[in-house]
Amino acid sequence: MRTEPTGPTIGWDVVRDVSQVLEYHFMVNALLAGGVVAVMAGLVGWMMVLRRETFAGHTLAMMAFPGASGAALLGVPAAWGYFAFCGAGALAIGRFAGAERRSWSERSANTGAVQALALAMGFLFVSLYGGVLGDLESVLFGNLLGVSDTQLLGLTGVAAAAVVALAALARPLLFASVDSDAAAARGLPVQALSISFLALLGLAVAATSQITGVMLVFALLVAPAASAQALTARPLPSLGITVALGLLVVWLGLGISYYSVYPAGFFITVISFAVYLLARLFAMALARRSRERAPAASRPGPRRGVIS
């Protein structure tokens, strides 16, 4: 990460620091790629968090492992493996979502089984291939600092396609996510919507994680969206906050890692977690204030749960 033995030094002159970071082409590419992933993952992740499908998102992100190792074993481009496994995973998880109403525990158990199967297959592929685990680290954690111009272009194209697809699905999907019974009664294909969203999630994760690593994509899917939804329930402002927080987290993380020996992924995940904790604390403080203003009679107390 450091290019000279002494390394760049950080000072109080912000303009000098930023221009020092931007001096290198690989840093510019890393910042751009990180920004693109932050916007796409923020938008898709907002819907994912709203639908409480974090576990599904995590499982789909994990599909990169059998995808990459299976492709290496067969000698085909890694992208084929990513897309095949993410698509199959979305179908396997989506089978249990939507119209045929299953309990939460049953759905999460199914997702867990899909993930276990995928990882077991991935490990099998790795050991058949000859047990090169050096790749595993780059699959999980990516190499944001080695993004080429072509990769950046491809990444931007995929992200734009994902955002356009999400925008096309957005209105019915939002309805189905918030109140699936009412949406089904109004004739919306709830199950088809649910599977298409999972497929979109899987493809977006597959396409971006090849370049930036699974972990970074997952961190950017969950944390900014969860923070934004803790702060406001209105869709548009919360989407805006999500994207802003995602960009902040990525750029700050990359900037700090430039001046340190530790990898960018570490800083990005830690900063996103800190942002989430701050958002939760802020939301709790807001709720407490509004509760204090409200008349005491309407305050829901513990153990006063009336059978509903």
């Binding site: 409480r52 576990f55 995590h58 309990s103 939460w104 525990s105 954690f141 997952f218 977690f273």
Partner: peptide, 27 residues
């Protein structure tokens, strides 16, 4: 059911930091 659903997001964010720490220790 809704309790587990609310846990979902909290666990997801804890996750990312856990994996981040993994990278840190690996380095």
């Amino acid at each position: 059911a809704s309790a587990s659903a609310a846990e979902d997001t909290a666990i997801g964010t804890v996750f990312t930091v856990i994996l981040g720490l993994g990278v840190f220790f690996l380095t």
